[in-house]
Design a protein around this nucleic acid. Sequence first.
DNA 1: AACTACAGAATGAATGTTCATTCCGTAATG
DNA 2: CATTACGGAATGAACATTCATTCTGTAGTT
Lengths: 202, 202
Amino acid sequence: MDSPPPSVRAKNAEAKRDAILQAALRLFAEQGFHGTAVPEVSAAAGVGAGTIYRYFENKEALVNSVYCHAKRQMAAYLLDDFNYTASRRDQFHQFWERLTRFAQDHPVAFKFLELQDHAPYLDEASKKLELSVLMPIWNFCEQAKAEGVSRNIPQEALIAMMWGAFAGVIKAQHLGYLKDPQAALREAENVCWDMFCRPGAS
Amino acid sequence: MDSPPPSVRAKNAEAKRDAILQAALRLFAEQGFHGTAVPEVSAAAGVGAGTIYRYFENKEALVNSVYCHAKRQMAAYLLDDFNYTASRRDQFHQFWERLTRFAQDHPVAFKFLELQDHAPYLDEASKKLELSVLMPIWNFCEQAKAEGVSRNIPQEALIAMMWGAFAGVIKAQHLGYLKDPQAALREAENVCWDMFCRPGAS
DNA sequence: AACTACAGAATGAATGTTCATTCCGTAATG
DNA sequence: CATTACGGAATGAACATTCATTCTGTAGTT
């Protein structure tokens, strides 16, 4: 609708907003929401304390913006150009490979999202976005189950376990527990697939 | 050494200490460390604000006491009278059944432990206790691997995934996502066993 | 047994600190 | 020159912790 002259102002504003979001992401991921002071964020972003309130209504709005930004990024990695016609195993591989790549490219964002999961200060917009990542995985599991590809147990439990296992390896990697993270992640895919599919089926 | 008369005083003191620990456990589990105010804890425990500081040096010492208490409880569930002579599969079943029972009997403690995992304010005593739970699981996995029972992938990754999967189901249960939690937990054991052991081996 | 005096446990108002948010003088923009 | 954005000191609320005081169980006295 409006775009003719991306004035110097607008450019700076966007850059400043991004700096704040990035600093907040890092600090919230490291110290949690309540453990991070707003002036701490402003200092890390290289702006004045008051400036944050020009871009975000308050601390809660800030954390929700960070959350939505990170979640949208994750959703993009997961879904952009996804090939829904591939075999179940290949779709699983796509999911795995995409989530892995997101976690590698944006480790801080991944940690942040895990930490703030289901936090009471997340608003409707954040919760709605949460679903946008879950839905395609849910549908995939439902279809795989209907086809008899996956185990015949409640999807809720299966999804919870697979996500938990995935998040577990990533966390172990971040903590430096894995000698060869790349290899571990590759093997983890097979482990999770065996978890997912019927025993006996390869 | 000293035990003759557990005087009224000593009884009251122990009861009060327990009330504080229990209130703190619940609030920290629900709102996190930084999200919980000390006077909030004292109110929930039914004692004065100052009383907390008669029993704990400060807020950090309090959260560490809560952590150690909960972790010791978990360790007791996991290890007391464990039968190390059983088959690998039966040992696995013991671990699973014991952890499950702990999570059912003490859901708040389990949530607390998951939430405070690797928090920067945990002291040496807490970190040491952490190991006491991990060690026997670690040894079990090492032996199973040596015998060719488990998958031939790094234990660190396997343990991280199994713990993640277990914590995932429990979390799903707490969030009310599972229609039949008991059944889900029973099936989850098999899923995790398949995760653990060589593909093809039953 | 009834009474008194004492030690130390409990209390919550008071204290100093930290934090989220606001305000205003200054600088940059158009 | 008029507007808008900025930084960071200022503000007031909330917090962790302290401390002067009250309360309570215990031991000693009659």
